[in-house]
């Protein structure tokens, strides 16, 4: 058990499930996850937008130093994904380290992110997987 809070996991469900980001009415920039104010210009006038689900892998790390609950799936591939209008950090799934390269196309998929032991909360959300380019 890692002591994940059920209400906290529930609160983040919308942006985590649907890639909902904040768009600033003032400077026009988009940020994820949505904040109370624009992280760029500080404006509090924000709208919600769904992010594109296709992007490119800008950089990645193959993470072995993961917490106990993730040990069985280590190494975890963590990526910086460029969706055009915004970038996100996400897990790269359905692929091993040998399948990954900088610049490759990736698409959003719905996956289990973590589980809090045998009886704790399950966290679901978006991860990205490589797209086979034609």
């Amino acid at each position: 058990m890692t002591g994940l809070s059920v209400p906290a996991v529930w609160r983040g469900r919308i942006h985590r499930y649907r890639l909902v980001a904040g768009k600033c009415n003032s400077c026009g920039r988009i940020h994820y996850p949505p904040s109370h104010s624009c992280p760029h210009c500080g404006s509090r006038g924000l709208a919600e937008v769904e992010l594109p689900r296709m992007g490119r892998l800008v950089s990645y790390s193959i993470v072995y130093s993961v917490p106990s609950e993730s040990r069985s799936k280590a190494p975890v591939i963590l990526g910086l994904v460029d969706l055009g209008v915004a970038r996100v950090i996400s897990e790269i799934t359905d692929a091993g380290p040998e399948d990954i390269s900088v610049g490759m196309q990736v698409e959003a998929v719905f996956r289990r992110i973590t589980e809090d032991g045998e009886t704790g909360v399950l966290v679901y959300g978006v991860k990205f997987r490589p797209v086979k380019e034609a």
């Binding site: 983040g12 985590r16 994820y32 996850p33 800008v58 950089s59 990645y60 790390s61 193959i62 993470v63 072995y64 130093s65 993961v66 917490p67 993730s70 799936k73 280590a74 975890v76 963590l78 990526g79 910086l80 950090i89 996400s90 897990e91 900088v102 992110i113 973590t114 966290v123 959300g125």
Partner: peptide
């Protein structure tokens, strides 16, 4: 913890992304 921290970023996951980006 509400952003990238929901994933298994562990020790060095973010720095690993930065290091590869720097090298490239």
């Amino acid at each position: 913890v509400e952003g990238e921290g929901i994933y298994s970023i562990g020790m060095g996951g973010i720095a690993g992304i930065l290091m590869r980006l720097y090298m490239e």
